[in-house]
Design a protein around this nucleic acid. Structure first.
Lengths: 227, 227
DNA sequence: CTACTCTGCCCGTACGTGCGGTCAGTTCAC
DNA sequence: GTGAACTGACCGCACGTACGGGCAGAGTAG
């Protein structure tokens, strides 16, 4: 699950990343409130104090998880937007990417989605909230552009983005990466229903949703686990 | 916010309902883990012991919240299915009803949606889980029927139901019943995108999604706050 | 090379607090 | 009398975090 970071013994940055990864997994499994330093520390064979030394408080640890996650997602989103230009392809890419994360980095994704609500009010989450809003704005802009181009039927772009994010963010409650259903097939089905719902023609829908099509391949390249 | 139940003093069933309502609101606002007996009790001007006397444990309180909520939703769903027969109308009714709850009973709805995940594993939640599954099965059945009738384009009915529930269950993170946006308009937009995505013809889509149309009116009657 | 110091990583413990739940006992309606 | 509603004091525990110190490696003066 957690790849060996650098080498045994003293790794660059110490065990900081290791702590963060384990904490993330615990948040994913039990939620933030029930995740605690003691369990993380004992699982890693270290002291609670070590965690405090590296991160200070629990809040900040969660904030760091969220910020790291959103930073990667934002970076990838910009690359995808640069490579794909058709509105329906761009939307499809967001969906494929959103679903893909659930298998690629299940722990981080679930941890993020479980605790997004803390972005809205909790102090210290301003950065992560801004990142999340920026991401949503990217999607809204694509929906507006597509609408202006006549690719999507007129409608409320913000509501549509929320409808789309809802489907994706809810996945953590039912999707099992180890289950029978493949992530790509979920993405394809979601894409088809969504794009068709936006008024995209059937041929373009099928092409953009295809789990082996150009959009999905592009997403696979961009979102590949970093080397 | 909380309507005066019966009369001051000794109400039928004691203050049990009052406790449950306040607890529900606290769960909606802070989540289950951060909701505690002390705050509920002091807000109601009673002792913690009273709450324990009525409900035993915190788990059971949550279970009762979930079960009451799902019981009402299931009852209404059956009425709606009896009154509406066209697949696209039935799906639209589920969406309208789902959105409507967010304004009609914000506390209960948010409390339920925030903590649905506990239905999957936590013991003592079997009843609520069964109710939730039954509800989802109703939707899946409608999707399958519509598919068989040729109203919906072929696809994975279970995935589609999850896509739909995702959009609705996510609402608690962004929808503000007191905000500018009306629930009915959210429902209309969601309906339009979803039904169109299922392959329903444009005329039927517009009719079923109309916030003042027959489907919405039917839902309003059935889901009216009980007298 | 040696000795000394500085610094960042890490440990173990202890403290304070908040919370779920218990219990013995009181009040009150019937 | 009987039983339900209710109280308030109390317990035990889990958890976040503060704190003091240990230890190894880098830098530096001699």
């Amino acid at each position: 699950m957690t790849e060996p970071v650098v080498a045994p013994g003293r790794a660059r940055g110490g065990r900081r990343d290791e702590i963060l990864a384990t904490f993330t997994r615990h948040v994913a499994e039990r939620g933030y409130d029930r995740a605690n330093f003691g369990d993380v520390a004992s699982e890693l064979g270290m002291s609670k104090g070590t965690i405090v030394h590296h991160f200070g408080t629990k809040d900040r640890m969660l904030a760091e998880v969220q910020e790291r996650y959103m930073r990667r997602r934002l970076a990838e989103a910009h690359v995808l937007l640069a490579r794909l230009t058709a509105p329906e392809q761009r939307i499809a890419a967001f969906v494929h990417a959103g679903v893909r994360y659930s298998t690629e980095e299940p722990a981080t994704t679930v941890a993020f989605q479980r605790e997004v609500v803390r972005l809205t009010d909790e102090p210290g989450m301003e950065t992560a909230r801004a990142q999340r809003d920026a991401y949503r704005d990217l999607v809204v802009a694509v929906l507006r552009d597509g609408e202006a181009d006549g690719v999507f039927v007129p409608g409320d772009a913000r509501l549509r983005s929320l409808q789309m994010f809802g489907s994706l963010h809810w996945m953590w409650t039912w999707f099992d990466p180890a289950g029978r259903m493949r992530a790509q097939d979920v993405a394809a089905e979601f894409c088809r229903t969504l794009l068709r719902g936006l008024g995209v023609g059937e041929a373009a829908v099928v092409a953009a949703a295809d789990p082996d099509g150009p959009v999905a391949r592009c997403v696979a390249e961009v979102c590949a686990p970093r080397p």
